[in-house]
Design a protein around this nucleic acid. Structure first.
Length: 454
DNA sequence: AAAAAAT
């Protein structure tokens, strides 16, 4: 099976070949022919399966003929997050290099005037997040009556985010004889209802959920304490095979604090979360993609769909609230047949959440057990550091968002690792690594993060 | 419980 067998045009085949792809993925092989024949489609698949190209490629060929008119886009793609929308736009640019299709990216957080100007000129492909699309529609900047193709991507995520009413409203503004493609990793009842209402005689295709079936991701749970998390994480980050990592955390504040902490420890870390300005979000993502930084600390805004090559590791600083998110998060590694490692820091409080994850994926995740510490202090033995003249009182509780680090002090002053600390901006890394400072071959016999509530 | 998305 080659791309040429799917009925795509020569120009498109050339662009695909130049992108380095030779063989369609299962979803591409199944989806492209019916989409080219203008059929409605339900694709049960996640990103990482080549899903995006499965609609981008045939859309380019379908739209190759015909012309757009002002404010009347010829096709519309809905995405749940701004980054995903931007990523789809990149795909159109990559594969559409031999076509002269016009495109507009309508996302929030950026200036509207460029988007309005593009719409005025007329676009073939509109890629949007629902909020900004509705906004521009309400301002009379868009007419959807000429829109002959609609793609609803990541429908289940849209559902989670409360976008379904918006999607329904948008659907009613498109011509009824349009072609509709709906992609979703799962098919909960509201999504089924949506597709029954807005798709006609859809061809349904399904590909295996990559993360559950993906044997190329090596998963481990790492037992630690709430206080030991950062130190545990730093040790994992220093493994020999660690190249590029995304670290997920459940809270935006934690993302910020953790990024600062890692930077203080000399790591090249950036961050992405929903409280950042959009230009900053895209800039950080770029810095990560081009290798300026090799660690990206992220909220779940980056959990789904982001396709970044060569992410060797995913770390869950926190166990995600929802088990689905675990699958999505670890799916940022092991992409395109590469191998990846996914480490999840677990504390005793996480037992239930882990159980839910294991139930969902149907697999037990190996634990890196926390052995009984022979000696209470696993790392950075106290005598190694000259004792400061006066010692700060140790905090009893874990750090919270309200905590302010004393000026000029490192993260350790915040109470993450309560111990006497050396006076310097960037605290030294532990010298004694308990013999563990490399790849993680056996996952069996090391102990760390044992400080604290054990 | 969190995060995401329009301002």
């Amino acid at each position: 099976m080659t791309f040429a067998d799917l009925g795509l045009s020569d120009e498109l085949l050339r662009a695909v070949a130049e992108s380095g792809y030779t063989e369609p993925t299962p979803i591409q092989a199944q989806a492209i022919p019916p989409v080219l024949m203008n059929r409605d489609l339900i694709g049960i698949a996640q990103t990482g399966t080549g899903k995006t190209a499965s609609f981008v490629l045939p859309m380019i060929d379908i739209l190759a003929h015909g012309r757009s008119r002002a404010r009347m886009p010829r096709s519309l793609i809905l995405e749940p997050t701004r980054e995903l929308a931007a990523q789809v736009a990149e795909n159109f640019e990559k594969y559409g290099k031999y076509h002269k299709l016009s495109m507009a990216l309508l996302i929030g957080g950026v200036n509207m005037s460029d988007q309005v100007a593009a719409l005025e000129k007329g676009v073939d492909v509109l890629i949007a997040t629902p909020g900004r699309l509705m906004d521009l529609f309400a301002r009379g900047k868009i007419l959807l009556s000429g829109c002959s193709i609609l793609v609803i991507d990541e429908a289940d995520r849209m559902l989670d985010m409360g976008f379904i009413p918006d999607i329904e409203e948008i659907c009613t503004k498109l011509p009824p004889n349009r072609q509709t493609l709906l992609f979703s990793a799962t098919m909960p009842p509201p999504i089924k209802k949506l597709s029954d209402r807005f798709l006609s005689n859809p061809k349904q295709i399904e590909v295996a959920r990559p993360a559950t079936a993906n044997a190329s991701i090596e998963q481990r749970l790492v037992e630690t304490s709430a206080r030991g998390k950062r130190e545990t994480l730093r040790r994992l980050l220093r493994a020999d095979d660690m190249r590029t990592a995304i670290i997920f955390s459940n809270r935006k504040t934690t993302v910020r604090e953790l990024t600062d902490s890692l930077r203080r420890h000399g790591f090249q870390a950036g961050q992405i979360h929903g409280d950042m300005e959009q230009p900053e979000r895209l800039k950080e993502l770029d810095r990560f993609k081009n290798g300026e930084i090799n660690i990206l600390v992220a909220s779940d805004v980056a959990a789904r769909g982001l396709d970044i090559k060569g992410v060797s590791h995913v770390f869950n600083h926190d166990v995600p609230w929802h088990p689905d998110d675990y699958v999505h998060r670890i799916g940022r590694t092991g992409r395109g047949g590469a191998t990846g490692k996914a480490f999840t820091l677990v504390t005793p409080d996480d037992a239930e959440a882990i159980e839910a994850i294991e139930k969902l994926t149907g697999q037990t995740i190996a634990r890196l057990a926390k052995p009984e510490p022979a000696k209470a202090e696993p790392v950075e033995p106290e005598p190694a550091q000259p004792k400061p003249a006066e010692e700060r009182p140790r905090r009893e509780r874990a750090p919270r968002r309200g905590d302010r680090p004393p000026a000029g002090r490192g993260e350790k002053a915040k109470g993450a690792t309560p111990r006497p600390e050396p006076r310097r901006e960037i605290p030294a890394e532990p010298v004694d690594m308990n013999g563990w400072n490399g790849p993680i071959p056996s996952f069996l016999d090391y102990g760390f993060g044992t400080r604290g509530n054990s």
